[in-house]
Every structure is written in C-alpha cells, then in structure tokens.
C-alpha cells in the first residue's frame, strides 16, 4: 500500500517536470502538442475512490496550468477525463470484472485493451483542451486535426512509457 502511494507520488512529480521542462519546449509545428502528463491519471490504481481521482486530476491540471499560462484549461480537461474514467472502465471491463488489486498495465490486459482505454481518454482530454484553447467554433476543422494528430502522438508516448517502465515479460 505504502509502496503504491510512493510510486504514484513519484510518478506525479516526474511527469510534471518532464512535461513542463521538455515536452512543452518540443516544437513540432502547431499540430503536434504532446501532453504525456495524462499518463498519471491513466495509471492511478483501479480501486482509487472517485473523489480522490477527481481531486488528484484537479491538482495535476493546476500544476500544468501554473507553468504554461493557461489558467483553468488543463484543469477542466483533466477533471472531465477523471470523471469519465470509472464509466469507461465499467464499460470495457472483462466479463467477470476486475480482480481485486490488479494494476492497469499492458502486461495484464493486453495491448488492444490498453489502446482502447488510453486512446478514448486521451482523445477526450485533448478535445476539451484544444477547443477550450480557441474558445470558438470558427476554426473547427483545423482544431479537429490538431486534436487527432496530438492525441495519436500522446498515445504513442504513453505506450512507449508503459513498455519502458513495465516491460512485458516473455514466458
């Protein structure tokens, strides 16, 4: 239990530092803005109570907002993402439900399940974020392209990170 909490706290700070100091400075044109920090929200344990999930996501968004001059945008996107997470998990859970204490990982659930899970939540997060950023509907399609390309980029980074820190062992 203690180990789980420490691990998540460490992940929280490392992801913020990586996002703010490195990814925010990666300039690949207007259409690729990766936001790897959502990995923290994706990886919170399955048994996290709902209120804690919302509060942690709120704090995560607040920290990212502080560093990138975007008051409220990341908070709103993170909170919506956290709100939808339990419903999505319920929808795509295995038939007999999750085992108690099982962790979200590619090793445990397979790559297809993981892509569905992470992909939907990342797409949701990026949609809210980019449309709040322009705050109007005039540039609807160019923003949609930004959402899709950036989500794909973030999803790739999330999968790579997951493989790096939680490698699939061959039997």
């Amino acid at each position: 239990m203690i180990e789980l909490i420490l691990k998540n706290i460490l992940r929280f700070f490392l992801l913020i530092i990586f996002q703010v100091l490195i990814l925010n400075n990666v300039q690949l044109g207007a259409f690729f803005n990766p936001y790897l920090y959502v990995f923290f929200i994706l990886m919170l344990p399955l048994e996290t109570p709902g209120w804690l999930l919302l509060v942690l996501s709120f704090i995560m968004g607040l920290c990212i907002d502080m560093f990138s001059n975007t008051v409220g945008m990341h908070i709103a996107a993170c909170t919506i993402m956290a709100f939808c997470r339990p419903y999505l998990l319920k929808m795509i859970s295995p038939r007999e439900g999750f085992e108690r204490g099982s962790k979200i990982s590619i090793r445990k659930f397979g790559i297809n399940w993981f892509i569905t899970y992470a992909g939907i939540l990342i797409l949701l997060h990026h949609t809210v974020l980019f449309y709040l950023e322009i705050f109007r509907f005039s540039a609807f399609f160019s923003t949609l392209l930004r959402v899709i390309l950036s989500s794909a980029f973030t999803l790739c980074l999330v999968i790579v990170t997951e493989y790096l820190f939680n490698p699939v062992k061959k039997n």
């Binding site: 709902g50 209120w51 919302l54 509060v55 709120f58 968004g61 008051v71 409220g72 945008m73 908070i75 709103a76 909170t79 919506i80 956290a82 709100f83 339990p86 709040l132 705050f135």
Partner: peptide, 22 residues
C-alpha cells in the same frame, strides 16, 4: 451521488477561472 457533484463543482471552478481570465 457525491462523485457527480464533486465533478460539477471542480469543473465549474475550472471554467470560471478560464472565463474570468478571458
């Protein structure tokens, strides 16, 4: 329904910060 209410509270907090700033 505390999960839904907490979500609505936090989300409106975020949006009010955003709109006030705009």
């Amino acid at each position: 329904n505390h999960f839904v209410f907490l979500f609505l509270l936090l989300e409106s907090l975020a949006l009010s910060m955003l709109i006030q700033n705009n």
